Amino acid sequence: MDGRHRDGASIYLVLTRHGSIDQDALAESFAERHDFDRGYGPSTGRLLRLIREGGDWRTLAREPFDGTGSWGNGAAMRVAPLGAWFADDPDEAARQAALSAEVTHPHPEAMAGAVAVAVAASIAPAKPPPGRFIDEILRHVPDGTVREGIAEARRLLTIADPSTASAVLGNGRQVAAHDTVPFALWAAARHLGDFKRAFWTTAAAGGDIDTTCAIVGGIIGTAPPDWLPHCEPLPSWALGQGSP
């Protein structure tokens, strides 16, 4: 479980305790359970350390990019459990996803990426046709580079080759929401209901594979039974069994 997977567990914990995203509680959980060895980026690692030392996340999170905050893909990577929590309620999933992203990634593009993934995870259990799946996501994503990329992913649904799709949409190599989320949604849309095909299609594109596969896997949902023994379980603290 890398840092962003661990943050997904914090989202789950906050939802179980509050029923919605309490931003202060989420920031506290992120900071308290920050583990440097889990592969956090340096900016996020610094942010969580300063929050843990008493800093205000509302100020600290907006320091990068001249006061607009990070537009990285971390908020999108960790948000799928939130979308699943609000299954069949994409409007609420979108609203809560924006709140969850703002704690560490308040840039509009990062928030748009988180909204898109949460909506996707919310509606994926119904297995809508690929085009309708993307259209519903677009209905919730504000104008910007992420939305333009998702619209392009919609146009590329007839393309089967992940390398071709990622050449247009990106594969997370830039570690930015707009370079990550559109391709992940393309892969998920083409293989809703087929975790293995979705996973290997995503991995075949290269780039930031742990992030793109985590997003796609989170959207698709339950992994095949023969894969589950190889997955790291939720930490005990996320299940209400104490601190790490």
Rank of each mutant, 00 (worst) to 15 (best):
A204H: 02
Q23I: 07
G72T: 05
T59E: 15
D22F: 11
A126Q: 14
R197L: 12
L60V: 04
A98V: 06
G131A: 13
P106W: 07
S163H: 12
I11C: 05
W57V: 04
D208M: 09
E148N: 13
R38D: 13
P128F: 01
R4Y: 11
T104E: 04
P129Q: 11
P235F: 03
A9C: 15
G131P: 06
F133H: 01
V181P: 02
P129A: 15
R52I: 10
T212R: 00
A187M: 01
D89R: 13
S163W: 12
R33Y: 15
A76T: 09
T211I: 06
E102D: 14
E232G: 09
W71R: 06
E109C: 08
A87D: 04
S100F: 06
A76R: 04
F65M: 13
Q174T: 11
I51V: 15
L157I: 09
G221L: 05
P42H: 13
T202D: 04
A204N: 04
E28R: 14
G45E: 05
E32K: 15
P125Y: 03
R58E: 12
W57N: 04
A188Y: 04
D91L: 09
P235L: 07
G45I: 00
V141R: 02
E136L: 14
A223K: 08
G221D: 03
P162R: 05
P229G: 02
A84K: 10
I159H: 06
A153H: 01
A203I: 09
A31K: 04
L60N: 02
R46Y: 09
P129W: 02
L156C: 10
R147L: 03
M111Q: 09
E53N: 08
P235D: 12
R62Y: 09
R190A: 04
S10F: 00
G72Y: 01
A101E: 01
D89P: 06
V103W: 02
G172I: 08
G170E: 05
A188L: 08
L50K: 14
L185T: 02
M77Q: 13
A176F: 03
W71V: 02
D24T: 12
T212C: 07
I219G: 04
A121N: 07
D143C: 07
D208T: 10
L234Y: 09
V14R: 02
E136D: 13
I215G: 00
L234E: 06
C213L: 09
E28D: 15
P224D: 12
G172Q: 08
A76N: 08
H105A: 06
L48I: 10
D89Q: 12
H18K: 15
V103I: 14
G170H: 03
I123V: 14
P108L: 05
L169K: 00
R4Q: 12
P235C: 09
P81Q: 10
G206N: 11
G74Y: 00
Q96R: 04
H5R: 13
V119F: 05
E32F: 13
R173E: 13
W186M: 05
